[in-house]
Nucleic acid binder design. Structure first.
Lengths: 228, 228
DNA sequence: AGAGTAATCAATTAGTCTGTTGATTCCTTG
DNA sequence: CAAGGAATCAACAGACTAATTGATTACTCT
């Protein structure tokens, strides 16, 4: 009787460990973070993460074996997506736990932002209400695909690569707020650098779409297919 | 500029990976689960988990390196505890994600319970309100230490080992509800088996103290020292 | 001081994980 | 049906991990 309990427990903790293993590799965490933005092909994920195709494919298979993501083949391409929105929620739980327990994260982030003069103290709630009231120009600087999979209502899609060429279309009399994937995505930081250099009043919002959604705020999608 | 972003991201995901690594081992998950019940010495944890002292000590050090737990030396004994109640919350998040994504967990659990005729459908909310109104006898069958670190108000501490010898003190005209550490702890299941064999009307509550607390319900501690 | 005990350390073994490379499969398109 | 590209597979080297064993440290108590 005590040993049959042991067998049961071993089986249970082994299962819990499957989830833990999935999120024990930095590469896989990066892939999961990307997938929180919406479905992507293996190729696109590999490019974003700066990894080889084969390696990315293997990591994605590990994630699939732990049932955190699902794959679907469309013609030549395989599209991976989160199996469930709870996976994204879990990723955020993990991220927040790491933020609260590992001061290294704050240290690394602070240093990164200081290096590019981005030490804004910005009150988040105020910023969010200004965005919702439409009194600022809101830029979504992620790749268009991700914008289409889900974005903040009122945002304009200006992928970072296109930013310089589209500056003329932006009103100069309003503050510009740029956002991207979330607090550890560098796109918005880079966008703000460009904008300020060109004379715009620009700030970055840390929150990405998953954070926005987690606050219970509305999210818009452009295509029928999108939204896991 | 793209590569400096890469360095930053690598550093961040490596940190997130520290949390993931900590929860990637079944043994460590079991230790974390135990620590959610309250602080324990290395020896006690090793005994509960059925592992060698040295191995347990090493796993605890891994958990400490990831800042999920803290250790404090008192005389000959080292007491480990969760570094933060958020760690327990995170463990529950992980457990719930595993439950929702890995049907193996339900399969294993169902089989285990069926083997001991424990296929009660019990409506949880009703059960909880009956417990709160005091119309059932509530037994906490965990080791006394854990009861003292925090228990459900109104519960009586009857560690499983003492159950047989204390049956006489239990009222026979009321239903008995037994609880232990949580849904994957076997103590309450075993207690119910004993109670039923002796003619009591007994059922098991899946929720443990952490689940109870997570519902926002009150928890009582017996000693000053307890409660991480 | 010396015995005794909780915990850790050190060293070892077997096993697992990561990332690379090159071959292979599967599908589309001309 | 052949060419070409997306993704996976297979095999490998190097690094890391888990559990065991025996030695060592750190503390208490007599």
């Amino acid at each position: 009787m005590p040993s049959s309990g042991r067998k049961f427990k071993d089986a249970i903790y082994e299962q819990l460990g499957r989830i833990g293993k999935a999120v024990s590799s930095p590469r896989r965490l990066e892939l999961l973070d990307l997938l929180c933005q919406g479905p992507r092909t293996v190729e696109a994920l590999a490019a974003e993460a700066g990894q080889s195709l084969a390696n990315t494919s293997q990591h994605l298979q590990v994630l699939r074996a732990s049932r955190l993501v699902e794959a679907e083949k469309h013609g030549l391409f395989v599209t991976y997506r989160l199996a469930d929105e709870r996976v994204c929620a879990f990723f955020r739980d993990l991220r927040r736990l790491a933020e609260s327990r590992l001061h290294e994260i704050q240290a690394v982030t602070r240093q990164f932002l200081e290096e590019r003069g981005e030490m804004e103290p910005v009150d988040r709630d105020t910023l969010i209400s200004r965005i919702r009231s439409g009194e600022v120009t809101l830029l979504d600087v992620r790749p268009r695909e991700e914008f289409e999979a889900g974005h903040i209502p009122g945002a304009v899609s200006v992928p970072l690569a296109e930013l310089e060429s589209r500056l003329a279309a932006l009103p100069r009399d309003r503050e510009v707020v740029a956002y991207c994937r979330g607090p550890y995505c560098v796109l918005a930081v880079q966008a703000v650098e460009v904008l300020r250099a060109k004379g715009f009043r620009a700030i970055r919002m840390e929150e990405g779409v998953p954070d926005w959604r987690a606050r219970g705020l509305p999210v818009e999608a452009s295509t029928k297919e999108a939204q896991a």
